[in-house]
Amino acid sequence: MTLLELHRVSKHFGGIRAVEEFSLEVQAGEIVGLIGPNGAGKSTLFNCVAGVFPPTSGEIVFQGRRIDGRKPWDLCRMGIGRTFQIVKPFASRTVLYNVTVGAFAVTSRLGEAERWALEVLRLLRLEDKADMRAANLAIADRKRLEIARALATRPRLLLLDEVMAGLRPTEVDEMVAVIRRLRESGITFFLIEHIMRAVMALSDRIAVLHFGHKIAEGAPQEIARDERVIKAYLGEDYGAA
């Protein structure tokens, strides 16, 4: 079943064509990676899907319904969760509070919301930090918190914007395991990632964005072999990561 469909989505800022005629389908239960050099338009595309701003043209369909132009809070209620590239924790609050805010998307009772939030924290192995202030978390835990919070809203589709950036190799491995576990629980992933090792290991399919255009799409092995992709991107980064 097709969960998310992007149909010739473009986003222009004044004269800058950040994303141009981008099309993609994400099937339920899939992990789809979106890669591309810095400034390729990945975050812009994400923001269109997450409702931060509407696309200039094109259609975005989620579970059979047009969603382009909808507000972020509506999309969340429809089942799209997201994380931010630059994490945005509610820094003065505890970890549990942060996740409880997310849990309130599915219940109105504090007790129930907190119980659900704790369950999510346990799933992400953050439960022993539940009473810590989010501001005091290390970067890896902040990234986890970002996922936990989105997860608490019970999304069907989770948009992850560079959740591995800044993590140590062992932490990357843990995060990969976390995402796999979540996929088994039925969540679909659409993720932007710079760390090639992770995105290659995780994704069922990968789309490559270059200067706003999709230049390739396919299984990780195909992408790794694709001439244009190597030229545009992988050549410089693959070895390093």
Partner: peptide, 26 residues
């Protein structure tokens, strides 16, 4: 302060974009 409203207010006041992504019409 112990209700959904209170949590949503705190979240929206601190990080409006994050709050919106969690389903809150700030």
């Amino acid at each position: 302060s112990r209700s959904k409203l209170g949590y949503c207010l705190a979240a929206g006041g601190e990080e409006p974009e994050a709050a919106q992504s969690l389903g809150i019409n700030v």
